[in-house]
């Protein structure tokens, strides 16, 4: 699980082009949107594509993303429970 959380943080920093932010700067319970990491609606779509591409998880209802993408912990929990690829 820790490896997955590390992987998610690295993806977010690299793919969402977060400048001057390191893996150590993102806490597992930190809010990813709003006042937390400040991700926006396009970032949310990018995360939905990432779930599909990297873990074989298709979100049929984008509204599900609100709970899933709340933090690194919620993302890791959801991926662990629903992933179809290793």
């Amino acid at each position: 699980m820790d490896a997955l959380k590390q992987e998610l943080k690295e993806f977010i920093i690299e793919q969402l082009n977060l400048e001057d932010i390191n893996v150590e700067d993102i806490g597992n319970d930190d809010a990813l949107f709003g006042d937390g990491l400040g991700l926006d609606s396009i970032d949310a779509l990018e995360l939905i594509v990432m779930l599909d591409k990297n873990y074989g998880i298709k979100l049929t209802d984008p509204k599900q993303g609100r709970a899933i993408f709340e933090s690194i912990n919620t993302m890791a929990d959801y991926i662990t429970a629903h992933r179809t690829t290793n």
Binding site: Q15, L16, I42, D43, L45, E46, V49, K53
Partner: peptide, 9 residues
């Protein structure tokens, strides 16, 4: 086939 929303916009 994984179009990137961040690129597409």
């Amino acid at each position: 086939y994984f179009p990137s929303p961040a690129i597409f916009v």
